[in-house]
Design a protein around this nucleic acid. Structure first.
Lengths: 211, 211, 211, 211
DNA sequence: TATGAATGAGTATTCATTCAT
DNA sequence: TATGAATGAATACTCATTCAT
């Protein structure tokens, strides 16, 4: 009876410390880039010795994964909130797609994190099978509302899924280009192009034109 | 009479050796990732001492740039060939867009190289201002035919440019997703989605629906 | 009660290890020359990996500076002891000058270190502004007693200063020649020449012949 | 008969090329410091490939030695000229000593070269026994006039020799201090101190006070 | 006489991680 | 839980020198 509260307190302290380390990691990722961030730098920023971090995370990659997971959770929350405010299916589809795009457009740090998952091509992504699956699941959850809204508009589950993937791809492409200055280089506006894409997609669904 | 052929031979040998080193670099990029590739590894793969590479290239970054440049040249050539085979503007637009997408879909190594250009977000790209501009120019040249064909279809220069950027973004997004297994994960097909996107774009241009 | 001694012990161990590394550095300086000494060699001589030295010193230059500082401290102590044992001003002047000379004559390693400070002419000294100033101050402290004794003999502060510099120069020149075999080559004795110089200087001061 | 002139021409061309390389070496020594000068840099400055220098000099050290030798020859010439202009022995002694000092005071590059000979302490000086002896002989020749003048003033050969060495030492010390800013640091003037030293030495010789 | 290519040894410093304390 | 010390591997690049051509 005297022990349990203590354990709870201990766990809370432990969780707090983890959170402080993750905050430090985010700051270092922003300052040095994700690949350029070293465990030493994260530890220093958090007020720790490098060795100390190993009591809180099993490896550098584990820290990456944790930060990524939190980012994806914020993304999903942003999408969910947008959807919750939109009663009609078409508006929901629009809101979900634009919220997804808007989250990353507004939070370039999170975009860097997201792209980190996509680096390396065919090479092992480096975070381990289990972590990869966890992150993929989190990503899928953030995209789900798009497919759900499409289905509510009357298309089949398969078509809704394709539309979701296609929207994801378009957003990713535009964000990639915008993030690296290519959109500006060509004198275009990423949010406008995204909005146009979404409107065309909704129109196509309405027409029964498939996608 | 005896000297000139020798000189020619020498230059040919020199060019050949450069090419062998670049091939080795490509293999190492594929195996270790582009950021993970070290000069030592490239040298070893090419059968050289690290120091020897400095007789052929002035720095590691110069090797990167050379490999990237060659890749973009092959891309542009693929697009140009596809366009040359298509007389009508609509077919040309389709051919250019699908050739761009198809080149990277068929050559994942080149896709890795291409994405390397896009990494880092706000971080320095690391190849130096001059090399960066050269590479941007090469990329723009590969995309140009898309805008040209759109303009031939009757839209304004601005609209043609937007369509080119949007197509670029869609291709990039689909390739990114496909390359990292996300397309498969959602049970979709990147080439099909790309073709559908292009067809819709052509139809929109035909309708005078802008984009 | 159990903790404090431990901390003291730790600090003592740390200081001891630093000293062992500095000793190794001194041996390597002697063996390879100061410019020729590499961090690797110092580490190997100390029984460490190169990386390990970075836990004890922040850079190679920091090691150089530490060794130099310790040498100058020993020099100053030798001069101070000689002066402390000499009550009369003339004897003090003599003792200080000969102690300065004698220290380096007896410790050729320290002479090499001292000359290192003087190398490079117009080139950057390479230890950084702060360290340079610290070392200059330490050197000035070792010479101070010469000027003080001269002043006690009745000359002005300026004249005492000049005598100090001149004595420094004569000692440095003789040591340089002796250290590189030139004195022997000319069949002379550096200590004798130094003593003669000092005696002449004291006589000149006594005569009121200025310097 | 047709051959000899050609050989002479060839040797002249060869000598000229050597001289051009040595000039380049001097410029690089000045720019990068003597230790910092690389064979590559000297070759580039001379308009050659590094490998080409090996047809003119057997090693990097040989280039050092040649440049040093030329410097010492200029020194000896400066001393000889000063002596030639001074008929009386006392004036000759004064002129020789001040010319020695003045040459290095006016030509800091040559001073760097001269000190290079004196570096390294007990370590092999690095130029090889033969070259060392050649350079020592050249140095002795530049100092000889000092001893000769002293002897002309009536002291024994041994005393004249000692005076020469002592003068050498004093000049070397003052130059060392001046060259590295220590004279300025103590608010003194090297030429004044040197002149005073020489005058005192001449007075001592006149008194029959030994030295 | 000169070159271009090549070598092997060398440089200081950083990295993620481990382990005894 | 946290530290300080340590490791071994890695980094890009420079050096004087050699050798076939």
């Amino acid at each position: 009876m005297a022990v349990e509260p203590r354990l709870g307190r201990r766990q809370a302290v432990k969780a707090l410390k983890r959170e402080l380390i993750l905050d430090a990691a985010r700051r270092v990722f922003e300052a040095d880039g994700i690949d350029g961030a070293s465990l030493r730098a994260i530890a220093a920023e958090a007020g720790y010795t490098p060795a100390a971090l190993y009591f809180h995370f099993e490896s550098k990659e584990a820290i990456y994964a944790e930060v990524l997971k939190a980012s994806l959770a914020r993304l999903a929350e942003a999408v969910d909130q947008a959807v919750a405010a939109s009663p009609a299916p078409a508006a929901r589809l629009r809101a979900a797609a634009l919220a997804f795009f808007g989250f990353y457009a507004a939070n370039p740090r999170d975009l860097d994190l997201g792209f980190y998952l996509f680096r390396g091509g065919m090479k092992p992504i480096g975070l381990g099978r289990e972590r990869d699956e966890m992150l993929n699941t989190a990503l899928a959850a953030a995209l789900r509302p798009i497919a759900d809204a499409a289905q509510a508009l009357g298309v089949t589950a398969d078509a809704a899924n394709l539309l979701m993937v296609d929207t994801f791809a378009h957003a990713a492409g535009l964000l990639l280009l915008a993030h690296t200055g290519r959109i500006r280089m060509f004198g275009a506006s990423a949010p406008q192009l995204m909005a146009r894409y979404v409107d065309a997609a909704i129109a196509a669904v309405g027409d029964g034109r498939g996608l």
